[in-house]
Design a protein around this nucleic acid. Structure first.
Lengths: 203, 203
DNA sequence: ACCTGAACACCGTTCAAGT
DNA sequence: ACCTGAACACCGTTCAAGT
C-alpha cells in the first residue's frame, strides 16, 4: 500500500490544464466549460477551484503552456540561423504563422482576447515581452551588420511583429482561401510578404 | 387610436441589433447574452428567435453594422486622397486602426473569431471582400503610376492588410503600452510602421 | 404573424460539510 | 489540505399556447 493515495492522481492542476488544452482544440475557445474540464479529469466540478481562482485563471494556465511552446519554437529558429538576421526574422515569422494554423484554437486563446490578463499572470507578460525583445535583438544585430536600416529597433521590430501577427490571424481564421489554400502555400505566401517588408527595412 | 399597435415598437430586429451593439461595448463580447439583449429591448427572452436563428445570428447582425461603418470610413479616405495611392494606403490603415481602438469590443467581435460565419452571412463576406478589393485597386493604381513595384497586386495588398490588421490587434488589446500610450501616439507610430512597409513596396 | 411562459439541459461560483 | 453535493443565479434553446 502506498501512503495517502491522494484524492487525485498526483497533480490536479497540471491534469486540468492538459484536459483543457485538449478540449479547447476540439470544442473551441468559446465551447469550453470549467465543468466539462473537471468531468474529463474525473473530479467534481468544484475541484478546480482549489487550483484556479476562476475559469479565467484556468484559461490563463492553458495559455501559459502555449506561450512556452511558442517561445521554444522561436528559440530554435534563432539557433538554426546563426548570424543571419534576415533569415532569423523571416523564419521566426514563418514559425509563428505555422504554429498558429496548426493550433488554431490555442492561438485564438492566446491572442483572441477571450480572457483577460489579470495581475497574477505575470508569467505570460514576461514570456510575451521576452519574445518581443528577442525580435528587437534580431533587428539590432541586423543594423550592426549593416543589413537593416537605422532607426528605433523597437519600431522596426514592432512593424515586423504586426505583419506576422496580422497574417497569422487572417490565416488561422481562413480568410486567405482566395490566395492560398494548403498550409504549404500559406507559408510560402507568408515568406513573400515578409520579403516585401524586409525590402522596406533594408538599407 | 392607431391601428394594430404592433407587439413591439416597429422593427424589433433593428432594435435588438442596436441594443446588442451598445451592450457589447459595455460588457464585452463574451459578456453579452441573448436574454439580456432581449430584456434591454423590452421583450421576452424568446422574442429574438423570431428574427434570429440563434445567438450566433444576432452577433452576425451586430457585426454587419460594424462592417458597414468600416466600409464607410475607408470610402471616405479614398475620396479625401484622390490620385495618391501612397497616401490612400497609409490613411486607410490609420482609419482602420483608429476605428479599432475607439471601438475595441466591436472590433474584437468583427475579427476575434468569437462567432462563426455561417453560409447565411453572405453580406459580411461581400463587405469584407469589397474592402480587400479596394485595397488591391489602390495598389494597382500605384503600380500604374509607377510608385509601387511590380508584382501580384493582391499579394502586396495582403501584406499591407496584414500589417494593419496585426497592428490594430496589438493596439486594441493594449499590447503597445511600452511604445505608445495615447491614441495620438499610437496612430503616429502606425504611420511610421506603414512608411517602413511602403518603402519595401516602392520601386 | 408575433410574442409569451414554462421547461430543459446546461453554465460559473459559493458554501457548508466530509475525510 | 483536498475534495464533494447542494444551492443560486444565470445561460441558450425548444415548444405549446396565447392574441
Amino acid at each position: 500500500m502506498t501512503k495517502t493515495p491522494a484524492y487525485h492522481h498526483g497533480n490536479l492542476r497540471q491534469a486540468l490544464i492538459e484536459a483543457g488544452a485538449q478540449l479547447i482544440e476540439i470544442k473551441g475557445v468559446s465551447g469550453i466549460s470549467l465543468r466539462e474540464v473537471a468531468k474529463q479529469t474525473g473530479v467534481s466540478h468544484t475541484a478546480p477551484y482549489r487550483h484556479f481562482k476562476d475559469k479565467n485563471a484556468l484559461l490563463a494556465g492553458i495559455t501559459e503552456v502555449g506561450f512556452a511552446q511558442l517561445a521554444g519554437s522561436l528559440q530554435q529558429v534563432m539557433i538554426e540561423n546563426p548570424n543571419a538576421p534576415k533569415d532569423q526574422l523571416i523564419e521566426a515569422g514563418v514559425a509563428y504563422i505555422s504554429r498558429a494554423i496548426q493550433n488554431k484554437q490555442m492561438h485564438n486563446l492566446m491572442f483572441g482576447g477571450a480572457w483577460k490578463l489579470s495581475n497574477d499572470e505575470e508569467l505570460i507578460k514576461q514570456t510575451s515581452d521576452a519574445a518581443f525583445n528577442g525580435l528587437v535583438q534580431i533587428v539590432k544585430n541586423g543594423q550592426q551588420a549593416g543589413v537593416f536600416k537605422k532607426g528605433d529597433a523597437r519600431v522596426l521590430a514592432l512593424t515586423a511583429w504586426s505583419l506576422v501577427h496580422g497574417y497569422a490571424m487572417l490565416a488561422s481564421t481562413s480568410q486567405l482561401s482566395h490566395l492560398a489554400a494548403s498550409e504549404d502555400s500559406i507559408l510560402e505566401l507568408a515568406r513573400t510578404a515578409e520579403v516585401h517588408l524586409i525590402e522596406g527595412l533594408e538599407k
